[in-house]
Simulated assay, not measured.
Amino acid sequence: MPALKMEVIPYLENMIYLPMILTIVERDRMLFEQGNFKLKKPYIELLDDVARRVHKELGNTAAYLRGNRMSVVRGKMDDIFTEYIFVHDRQEDCRRYLNVRLRNRTEELLSHYLRQSDI
């Protein structure tokens, strides 16, 4: 397959990272709801705001990929690497990501979304 254009890589990677962020935010929201916090509402509102913005961006990303006939499929996974297959016009580009890199980048993006909150 010809190399993917650099401008499409962020969209493809969004399909990796944004669902991870949503999973984390939803899990953390449950912990705040069930936790023994004196004031839960501000934390829950903050997480809800992040989830709304991530959902919106994920929708925009999915629309872009559909419009350009692209998709992302998770391949093999082990303790060190996770493989993702970027599909474009029935051609595949297989990329392996270090699990530590996935975790660190997800954390960076989550921090970004938390700092950008409208609340």
Rank of each mutant, 00 (worst) to 15 (best):
M1Y: 03
M1V: 15
P2F: 09
A3E: 15
A3Q: 14
L4A: 13
E7R: 06
E7V: 03
V8G: 03
V8Q: 09
V8T: 14
I9H: 11
I9D: 02
P10C: 11
P10A: 12
P10W: 13
Y11T: 03
Y11N: 09
E13L: 05
N14P: 01
I16H: 10
I16G: 08
Y17V: 14
Y17F: 15
M20G: 02
M20P: 00
I21C: 07
I21F: 08
I21M: 13
I21R: 04
I21V: 12
L22T: 12
L22A: 06
L22C: 06
T23Y: 01
T23I: 03
T23W: 00
I24K: 13
V25T: 12
E26A: 07
D28H: 04
D28G: 01
D28V: 01
R29I: 06
R29K: 15
M30E: 14
M30N: 15
M30S: 14
L31W: 09
F32G: 03
E33S: 09
Q34T: 15
G35F: 07
N36R: 15
K38C: 08
K38Y: 13
L39N: 13
L39Y: 14
K41P: 02
K41D: 12
P42E: 12
P42N: 12
Y43E: 12
Y43I: 00
I44V: 13
I44R: 13
I44Q: 08
L46G: 06
L46Y: 07
L47Q: 08
D48T: 11
V50I: 13
V50R: 04
A51L: 04
R52P: 00
H55W: 09
K56S: 04
E57I: 07
E57Q: 09
L58C: 00
G59V: 01
G59T: 00
T61N: 05
T61A: 05
T61L: 04
A62M: 02
Y64C: 00
L65E: 00
R66N: 02
G67W: 02
G67M: 05
N68D: 00
N68I: 04
R69T: 00
R69C: 04
S71E: 07
S71G: 08
S71R: 09
V72E: 10
V73S: 12
R74M: 10
G75C: 09
G75D: 03
G75P: 10
K76S: 14
K76F: 05
M77A: 05
M77H: 06
D79H: 07
I80C: 07
F81L: 09
F81I: 11
E83A: 09
E83G: 01
E83W: 13
Y84Q: 10
I85M: 07
H88Q: 12
H88D: 03
D89M: 09
D89C: 02
Q91I: 01
R96I: 02
R96P: 00
R96W: 05
Y97P: 01
Y97T: 03
L98S: 13
L98T: 05
N99W: 06
V100M: 10
R101C: 03
L102R: 11
L102K: 10
R103S: 06
R103K: 14
N104C: 02
R105H: 07
T106H: 05
E107F: 01
E108V: 06
L110C: 07
S111N: 11
H112F: 10
H112S: 12
H112R: 14
L114I: 15
L114G: 08
Q116L: 10
S117N: 08
D118R: 11
I119S: 02
I119Y: 09
I119K: 04
I119Q: 09
I119W: 02
